[in-house]
C-alpha cells in the first residue's frame, strides 16, 4: 500500500461521507468550538456527561476528510463509555499520531487505528487531532 493509500483508508472515507453522531443537541450539554487557525478547519462538539459517563456526543464542522472522519470516529469510540476511558483514548490517539505502536492497550478504539497513516504526514496531524482536543476540553468543562 502506498503511504497515500495508507492515509486515505476506505474506512476513513466512509466516516467522511457518512459521519456518525453528526448534529446538535439542545439540552444539558457542554459545547466546545475549536478551529485550526492555519487552515480553517472548524468543529463544534457537544457532550452530555452524567455520573462520569459520556451519555451523548454530537459534532458539526467543516474541514478535510481527515479532520471530519477523525471527529466521527472519536464520537463513536467515546459515546457510552466513561470519561476516564475517553481521556485515555485521547492520550493514546496523540501517541498514535506520533507514530507509536499501540497494540498493547486494552481499550477498544474501533476504526480509529485506520488513522495511523496520518503520522507519516506531519502537516496533517493537526487535522486529525482537532476533534480530540475538543473532547479533552469538553471533558474538562463538564467537570467544572
Amino acid at each position: 500500500m502506498s503511504s497515500l493509500d495508507d492515509l486515505y483508508r476506505r474506512v476513513i472515507m466512509d466516516h467522511y461521507q457518512r459521519p456518525r453522531n453528526r448534529g446538535e443537541m439542545d439540552q444539558d450539554s457542554v459545547t466546545i468550538n475549536l478551529n485550526n487557525p492555519t487552515c480553517g478547519d472548524r468543529i463544534q462538539l457537544q457532550l452530555k456527561v452524567e455520573d462520569g459517563i459520556i451519555k451523548d456526543v454530537k459534532f458539526i464542522g467543516e474541514g478535510c476528510s481527515i479532520s471530519m472522519s477523525s471527529a466521527s470516529m472519536m464520537t463513536e469510540a467515546v459515546k457510552g463509555g466513561t470519561v476516564e476511558d475517553a481521556l485515555r483514548m485521547a492520550d493514546l490517539f496523540s501517541r498514535l499520531m506520533q507514530g507509536e505502536e499501540i497494540d498493547d492497550e486494552d481499550l477498544d478504539i474501533g476504526d480509529i487505528e485506520a488513522l495511523a497513516g496520518v503520522s507519516k504526514f506531519p502537516a496533517r496531524i493537526k487535522c486529525a487531532t482537532l476533534a480530540w482536543k475538543a473532547l479533552q476540553q469538553g471533558v474538562h468543562d463538564s467537570a467544572e
Binding site: 503511504s3 497515500l4 492515509l7 478547519d41 479532520s67
Partner: peptide, 18 residues
C-alpha cells in the same frame, strides 16, 4: 487539504487553506 496532500505526493507544492 486532501487535494494538496495528493498533489504533494506527486511533488507539486500548492497552498491550501484560508
Amino acid at each position: 487539504h486532501d487535494l494538496a496532500t495528493v498533489l504533494d505526493s506527486y511533488g507539486i507544492a500548492v497552498r491550501a487553506g484560508h
